[in-house]
Amino acid sequence: MSSARQARIGVLGSSLVVMLGLIGWAIFRLQVHQPCSYDPIDGFTSFALVSVSIGGFVGGHLLAGWLEATAAPRDRDDRSPRGTGIRTRFDGAAASRTAKLVVQAALVLFLALSVWLLAYEAVALADIHANWPITFYVRCFTHANAWAAGIGALAICTLLGQWVWYPAR
């Protein structure tokens, strides 16, 4: 196994452990004191959070570029089944179709969830006397746990930088 692949597995494994730890913290330890402020984030905190988000995005791209530049060619690609026999071709095509269906279902689920969340945000913002918009929850969380919000924004933007701003080989 190449060192770049080991590094990528290490980065992803440690990210997963951190994420699982944060999920456990959110379930068992997250405390928000009442009343919680939903005022806009401003001043140094706002500057720091936006800078951390942009920095994480660029850092993720640079990390992906370094890992990809030193990575060995992939053994397997879902699009090209190995072997030349009819059975192999048939199994490969079926597996490829299944993989495409799974990816398509995941994409539809993700987009449906995004639409639902954005619709709730729009409805709640139209009348904030009825429900808290998601923005207020994020601001409240940030006022109560600014460091945790910064770590979360950094982690998410770094991963997005790796995935969305992927280097060309």
């Binding site: 994420m19 959110a26 207020f136 991963l159």
Partner: peptide, 28 residues
């Protein structure tokens, strides 16, 4: 505005974290 619903904070944090953790697990 209405008082804070603590469940909203939990759900906001959990939905975000579970989505990202799932994507990281898939990438791994």
């Amino acid at each position: 505005v209405p008082p804070l619903n603590p469940l909203g904070i939990e759900l906001t944090a959990l939905v975000t974290l579970v989505l990202v953790a799932g994507a990281v697990a898939l990438d791994l």
